[in-house]
Design a protein around this nucleic acid. Structure first.
Length: 268
DNA sequence: ATGGTTGCAAGGCAA
């Protein structure tokens, strides 16, 4: 294998949308598929269906009704198991694995708290949780030193750049694009020495979205999107980036997620 | 204008 295709998708219920993965696999041909918001306890995780789709290696960390992440892979991996219990909540927002590829590759799948509606940590505990989570992740990366041969993906629930949202001005006070969240996310990225793989391919002057609300009458016509889903790579992999795709057609699939899958291909 | 939709799981919470 000369390259690895990694896909990340906030699937918003892995059991409900398992049938959609056939189309995702045809379109993006992932070697590794990272999911968020699986909303599925581990004992009910659809291992059989995912095995049938060719993902022989699977790790899931889920709970009843909310959150949940999973890594599904055609190549073997080992669950690292050295990750913290983020914010001491046991709420299933991260898995880290070591992929068994030439040279090795560390992969982290994150689901950052959405943060509720009011961007104020004093009056909104969910916003405080979001900021605390990112602060812990920043400290975690800082303590580990600059990352090497590593990839971090997931729904980070922050759209950091002006062109990551449909209207920078109108979203400045909307959770996901507030200056305090953007500063926190940038601090996390810098603490690990992470490199933004999607903006490697799409200049920061161009709009780029991975999420469109369910609440729009016509999501495509209004196009009020945000880039909430991210792929970060260590600096030593920046030159190894080969291709990417934000699979916008997935937003039109029947009974789909409000997020679309994102693929990045890395040379090994 | 303070909505609008979705999933889980069986009423309201979270997104």
């Amino acid at each position: 294998m000369s390259s690895l295709r990694i896909v990340t998708w906030n699937i918003n219920s892995v059991r409900l949308r398992l049938p959609l993965l056939t189309g995702l696999i045809e379109a993006l041909r992932p070697d590794v598929l990272c999911l968020q918001e699986t909303k599925c306890p581990d004992e009910l995780f659809p291992h059989e269906g995912l095995s049938a789709l060719g993902f022989e290696h699977r790790a899931a960390r889920g709970m009843k009704g909310y959150n949940g992440v999973a890594i599904l892979s055609r190549v073997p991996f080992r669950v690292r198991g050295d990750d913290p219990d983020w914010c001491a909540r046991g709420d299933c927002r991260h898995i880290g694995v070591d992929l068994d590829v030439p040279g090795g590759l560390e992969l982290h799948d994150f689901y950052v708290p959405a943060g509720g509606d009011i961007p104020d940590r004093e009056t909104n505990a969910k916003f405080a949780h979001k900021l605390d989570f990112i602060a812990e992740a920043t400290a975690w990366n800082r303590a580990r030193g600059p990352v090497k041969r590593s990839v971090l993906v997931g729904d980070l629930n922050v759209a950091p750049l002006e062109q990551d949202v449909w209207s920078h001005k109108q979203l400045l006070d909307v959770v996901s694009h507030t200056p305090v969240e953007v500063a926190a996310l940038n601090g996390w990225q810098q603490a690990g020495g992470w490199y933004d793989a999607l903006r490697h391919f799409v200049p920061p002057t161009e709009k780029l979205y991975t999420w469109w609300s369910y609440r729009a009458r016509d999501w495509e016509a209004s196009n009020r999107g945000r880039r909430l889903d991210h792929v970060w790579v260590s600096q030593d992999l920046a030159g190894q980036l080969r291709s990417f795709e934000v699979h916008k057609p997935a937003r039109s699939w029947i009974q789909t997620s409000d997020h679309v899958p994102v693929m990045v291909e890395v040379s090994l």
